[in-house]
Design a protein around this nucleic acid. Structure first.
Length: 263
DNA sequence: ATGCCGGGCGAAGCCCGA
């Protein structure tokens, strides 16, 4: 049995309803993970998805952040805000456990803090969040259930994931410490679908709204789908939906999809 | 060029994102 798993930072679900609906109708994903829904749960347009047979799991927040897992499969266990720093109230993580024909797997959807500018507490918050993410996922991997962590990581993993890396040295997305923390995370045993499928260099998932970033293909690859070692054997496909950025009123991020075959 | 777009809030201009 084959199914698709998509991550998409929509930059406000209510502002993106038309784009998301059109994309959904064409692509018919099995699991759609959203970041930056930017609304409370009661303001999330659930009917768009439930009317098409999806289950909607989300953790909202007024104006900012917020993540959702929208799935044709029903979750047997859902955990919200599992990764946080001290007692802050930012909604940036949600995890669902699915079971399909006695095949169990876990999906964790994250919106990792941006962290700019780097000389402020926003950056220390990002780094602390990344430490907590690593510790949490490490514990989850001991369950030995195929595990997927995906979302907007706000980290450019290598200089091949950005047009001109020199311009990003002092940015929280490409700062040395951000990359070090990202490597610490993947080194607990996670594999990037983008690398597993040997996608060529310089393929991006986000283009800024400003300075003609899209027109100049001045993008960054910061939206990732990472698999545990137990999950890698099921990966059959991967794609970045680059064309979505050229649509009317687009998000600055595009959908990234992995295909898994579990039977 | 650390805010030039764009979203949210809320009704003007500020906070936030990357």
């Amino acid at each position: 049995m084959e199914f698709t798993l998509t991550t998409w930072n929509v930059n406000g679900i209510r502002a993106r309803i038309e784009n998301v609906t059109e994309w959904l109708n064409i692509n018919n994903p099995d699991i759609l993970c959203l970041q930056e829904i930017k609304c409370l749960e009661e303001d999330f347009p659930k009917e768009i998805f439930t009317s098409k047979g999806y289950n909607v799991y989300l953790v909202g927040q007024k104006s900012f952040n917020g993540v959702a897992i929208i799935s044709k499969f029903s979750s047997i266990e859902t955990k919200k805000n599992i990764i946080c720093v001290s007692n802050d109230m930012q909604s940036r993580s949600i995890e669902c456990t699915f079971e399909i024909n006695s095949f169990k797997f876990i999906v964790c959807c994250i919106y990792l803090p941006n962290g700019n500018p780097i000389d402020t507490d926003k950056f220390t918050y990002k780094i602390e969040w990344m430490d907590n993410l690593k510790n949490y996922i490490k514990k989850e991997l001991t369950k030995e259930i195929p595990y997927v962590v995906l979302g907007d990581f706000n980290v450019i993993p290598t200089r091949n994931d950005v047009k001109n890396y020199e311009e990003w040295i002092d940015d929280a997305l490409f700062n040395k410490l951000s990359i070090k923390k990202y490597r610490e995370l993947v080194n607990i045993g996670l594999y990037d679908c983008h690398r597993l499928k040997q996608i060529p260099f310089k393929q991006y998932t986000q283009w800024d709204y400003q300075r003609g970033a899209w027109q100049n293909n001045n993008g960054v690859r910061i939206d990732h789908i990472l698999l545990s070692s137990y999950a890698t054997r099921y990966l059959t496909g991967y794609k970045i939906d680059r064309n979505e950025r050229s649509k009317n009123k687009p998000s600055d991020h595009v959908p990234v999809t992995a295909m898994l075959n579990i039977a």
